[in-house]
Write a protein that binds this DNA or RNA. Structure first.
Lengths: 329, 329
DNA sequence: CAGTTTTTTGGAACCGGTTCCATTTCAAGC
DNA sequence: GCTTGAAATGGAACCGGTTCCAAAAAACTG
């Protein structure tokens, strides 16, 4: 493996001259040509470690994700990756497999790897998180959750919940089940639900029940079954598309037709929701775009720029077949 | 930020002694205690760049993936990640967004980052790939594709195709459409199909047509429509689950009942195939396990171990509702 | 063409670790 | 008590770059 010293020797110049050539200092055309040729011939590439050591400007951004095998995270990761590439940064992914302890560990581990900053696809923010960020002093952007002490970038969960609530009412549903998740997850568990609640509260002829399940499809299948048996709503609104998929499965198992006997809606906008039958009515979030925004913001922050404490990303309701219009028949 | 020199000074010893403490050299209990305390107090962590510079034993493995938002890649990544963590390595992911040029660039870029080795979730292996591997001299493990000059780890596509072919025959289907992909993809485009062909050729009462589409669902929907119109098979066997999902969609659009009027099967074993209705009969590959195997193998290779040139991972057929048994009625 | 300014270049120090080697310390052996 | 060997430690060199500074070369200036 060639080093800068080798190149300098071959070109008959000093190390510093080669370094200048690489980083754009003033150089005569003649020496530039020489070095150019040698580098080309030898296929020399600078050692990244040595560069980062002296320069102290690491070009790696750490991204912490709770899981790799979810549509939402993948999309966000794609967005971050694309944008960082454009900005000449590398992305180092730390997967925590939904283990909060591992999340904290990852912060320190990334710190250890001397990343320039961290993008955290967050689920919950604990004291340990704040402590870790403070101790490592790394710039952080939160994606998907909000926290007043940190920069964050979130989906407009509240409005999304509200709009979907309005949509449900507009379609004539009055006996409604909302299948949510733990309130520990502020964005998905609280804000979506609160937005939804607000919309529903504007009509007092409604009967609404709220339920809770995990993020897993299998659990959603079970819970949905029992909801149908005990409450028999005309629509089940699910806090994520995965849960909605589980609800659909439950309906099929019970041989209940969707949407004529039961409507189902979700949040997310996952690709599969469009390919299945019946197509799932859902609120689509722009994951990839959020990823790009996160990357852009973090890099701006690294370069001493000012960014808003909290940024919102929009959404849109995609109407498909899984929600019945009660008023049309 | 503290450096090893600071620690040494605070502890009243030499840099080298601190280094020995960190890396396990012979040290007296007294100095060990002292250093221990200082490090604990200051929260010192060694600079990774400086370490890697001298030590030349990078602990980062590069993984090149064609896309992040596919079930298969995500699962493999999870497997690699889990295993590498256990083996004390970090994973650096390079996403190429299915761009072959970017794949080559990534090899050089990872080389530049001084990764210890590369795991390539491959689609096609070109001359440029071989050249890049040779020039960088990085150890490589191929996942999903085979090449005689490289270590590889593949699904048993040929047998999987054969077994699914047998299964289709066993269920009494005799008018069969096989919807494959480009033959540039040896594993998916050639081997699965060849295995399938071999099974079918053992029964001469069969009418089989072979078609080709892309990996995208939308294309599969169109192609399936035209297959139904022109050939009207009793079953469509799809080279991937995504394609099968597209085929299912096409059948729904045409109001053809699956499986009573048309059977559909796929390869992959993606999670959604179990949640949709009708459940998709598919050949399940063990992606996560393959990821673990890849990580284990690469690390073995790095430590001078011997590993087989080519390793096979098994599969299993999951019978669900999308394939009709013609002989039972 | 001497004097001054600007550009180009080389040399040395430095980044924060690791490692080799020489020296000191210490306990065991005779 | 002196020798010997092993363990502990310090000092210096080194990894492969970047950067500062001063010297050399080239380009103006009057």
């Amino acid at each position: 493996m060639k080093t800068i010293a080798d190149i300098a020797q071959l070109a008959g110049v000093a190390k510093s001259t080669v370094s200048r050539y690489l980083n754009g200092g003033s150089i005569s055309v003649a020496t530039k040509r020489k070095i150019e040729r040698i580098i080309h011939e030898t296929g020399y590439t600078p050692n990244n470690f040595a560069q980062s050591l002296k320069a102290k400007k690491p070009n790696i951004i750490g991204t912490i994700v709770p899981r790799l095998d979810s549509f939402a995270s993948s999309q966000v990761l794609m967005g971050i990756d694309e944008q960082l590439r454009d900005l000449n940064y590398q992305m180092l992914i730390a997967n925590t497999s939904q283990d909060l302890v591992r999340e904290i560990e990852s912060i320190y581990s990334l710190y250890n790897q001397k990343v320039a900053g961290i993008i955290l696809l967050a689920t919950q923010i604990s004291e340990a998180h704040l402590k870790a960020f403070e101790e490592t002093n790394l710039p952080v952007i939160l994606v998907g959750q909000q926290h007043d002490q940190l920069y964050s970038l979130i989906h407009d969960d509240d409005s999304a919940g509200y709009d979907l609530g309005k949509y449900v009412l507009k379609n004539g549903h009055r006996k409604i089940a909302y299948l949510g998740v733990t309130e520990k997850d502020i964005a998905v568990g609280v804000r979506r639900k609160e937005g939804f609640k607000r919309a529903i509260s504007e009509d007092d002829s409604c009967e609404v029940n709220y339920y809770e399940t995990s993020f897993k499809m299998e659990n959603a299948v079970e819970v949905t079954s029992s909801i149908i048996e005990s409450f028999d709503p005309s629509i089940i609104v699910c806090a994520t598309d995965n849960i909605a998929l589980g609800a659909l499965k439950a309906a099929h198992l019970k041989e209940i037709d969707v949407p004529s006997s039961l409507s189902i809606a979700g949040f997310g906008g996952y690709d599969v929701t469009g390919i299945i039958h019946p197509g799932l009515t859902t609120v689509k979030f722009h994951y990839e775009k959020v990823g790009r925004m996160a990357a852009t913001s973090l890099v701006a922050l690294l370069n001493g720029g000012e960014i808003p404490r909290s940024q919102l990303s929009d959404y849109q309701i995609i109407e498909r077949e899984s929600v019945d219009n009660k008023l049309k028949r």
